[in-house]
Nucleic acid binder design. Structure first.
Lengths: 316, 316
DNA sequence: CTGAAAGCGCTAACAC
DNA sequence: GTGTTAGCGCTTTCAG
């Protein structure tokens, strides 16, 4: 490919003039501008973006850290980010980590090596201290709350939402309530769920908490375990509508009616939940993603809380 | 941030030696290697990726062109791509186009400006001629079949799958069969569906084909129109399980039983279809995405057909 | 095994 | 208005 020097030579001008017309700078005579443009068109020239970014010290590209690449919840967040990034003419890189702290750090390092202007963390597998040291290389925004002034946050008050959901179940008269989580207690989301549970129900019998639930199948299996117990729960709060759907299937298989024999409430208002008319708490992850992107732009490191919504359908 | 020259000075060696240790080249004395490494660690130095890529003429980054960023089918494709890209230590950029040809061209231009080594086109809004001219700048692989030797293809035999689905319905005794598509006849997928329909049923009454269906709501509305007709269809082939789910809801609302009064078959084997036990034709889009990535690597421009599967559940 | 030097392709301060 | 030139930060011949 031709470079800017070739263009300059052919157009009979200097490289700066070429650069000026490429970047629409003023103070270029119309005649030269035309001349240069003609040569550019003739040679079908496109400026090398790497060279431009190298010198400009900016890539107009941000990364989105996600743990899995097959999880609806993270898709929703990503969609939110994409909604906004196209409007702002930014590119976005998807960075799956599988919750591997080392991999996550390598992603953050893309700020340091100048590949990325910012990164949005929809999940986190390192402690904040390790992460903070990267904030001097670019904008970091998290999809969870944190006090650190170097970090922007687009977050949901998960604790409140969990409390609400459990309260709802309690108000309906349930006392044997189980719940599932995606990960173990290394996850802050899991911790908050447990805390909220205890807040509402006091004790948490360990057998009422199952983790490592991600898919419909996981939900089915979890429900199997739960519903075969002697004092089986009368309500389950699932960590996602797909998981909830699996539970619903299982209950149906066992000839239990929902919500009479078993109440189910899911999360994230996903299609399968709508289809099965499952109640859900919608954390509005698309909005979270949109807000997260906006925060990478305005560099204020604001903390923005996104409201959640409980949607009551026929499973409670 | 320090650069390679700083490191060289502090370590008392030349920049080439520093470069050699960074890139694990042989022929560096252990003593110098250690010295350099110590300085690198001390200064917490990371090579600037833009500079490296600029000179190496390679970014280890590919782009995935998708039309919408809120469509499950394209999520599946993207997931497939990500599955493989992490294994190969490649980054991936998501490039939503909204089917805008100009935007699509700007994405392809990222090959020319050296930002991307390759791009996977899960959708296409330009004619092949416009696209082919970019293939000299990087690998282009399409998720549809094309003869062009410059293009790798990971594709499904959509025509065959449509024929199969319609045949299935015909075999079940349906003669009034309707179908929906995501777009109008500008889409090759729509064209193929129509062609397959005519192949099986001969005539296509225009009122049996509804387009612009994307979501569950779209499916609901489409079903409303279809089911309120005088000679209402006894079967509908939906262009996606979410759309099919909307139709299912509508049928239920009208007190029609599925499949007795209305057979429904969807596409892509999505959670909501599993939840509602809808029959579906699974085009295995995750595999398509995986294969597409593999094709960007091996540069053979092979044409790889991915088998589809029809999954019969209770809606047919 | 090591270093000097010539780039990669572009931008922008500076001088005219 | 326009051109000269010094970088941006790194890799890679080519000598030695």
């Amino acid at each position: 490919m031709a470079n800017i020097i070739d263009i300059a030579k052919l157009a009979g001008v200097s490289v700066s003039t070429v650069s000026r017309v490429i970047n629409n700078h003023p103070y270029v005579s119309e005649s030269k501008r035309e001349m240069v443009q003609r040569v550019i068109d003739e040679l079908d020239f496109t400026p090398n973006r790497l060279a431009v970014d190298l010198i400009r010290k900016e890539t107009k590209c941000i990364g989105v850290i996600i743990p899995y690449n097959n999880n609806q919840a993270f898709d929703q967040l990503l969609h939110g980010v994409l909604n906004r990034s196209v409007e702002h003419d930014y590119s976005v890189m998807v960075l799956p980590t599988k919750y591997d702290p080392a991999k996550e750090l390598r992603c953050l390092n893309m700020l340091k090596n100048k590949q990325l202007d910012g990164v949005i963390m929809t999940s986190r597998s390192n402690d904040w201290n390790s992460i903070l040291s990267y904030s001097k290389y670019g904008t970091i925004v998290a999809c969870e709350f944190t006090d650190h002034p170097q970090i922007g946050c687009a977050y949901i008050d998960r604790y409140a939402s969990f409390v609400d959901a459990f309260q709802l179940l309690k108000d309906k008269g349930h006392s044997r309530v189980a719940f599932t989580t995606a990960r173990g207690e290394e996850s802050s989301s899991t911790q908050l769920t447990i805390k909220a549970y205890k807040q509402i129900f006091g004790e948490l019998s360990p057998m009422y908490h199952l983790n490592d639930c991600q898919t419909m199948d996981d939900g089915f299996i979890a429900a199997q375990r739960l519903l075969n117990m002697d004092s089986r729960p009368t309500a389950i709060y699932a960590n996602g509508d797909e998981v909830a759907a699996g539970m619903y299937q299982c209950a149906k298989n066992m000839n239990l009616s929902v919500p009479e024999d078993l109440a189910i409430i899911g999360q994230e208002n996903q299609p399968v939940g709508i289809g099965l008319s499952l109640s859900t708490v919608d954390h509005q992850l698309v909005k979270v993603g949109e807000q997260a992107f906006d925060l990478t732009m305005d560099r204020t490191n604001n903390k923005v809380k996104i409201p959640y919504q409980i949607i009551i359908r026929q499973s409670t």
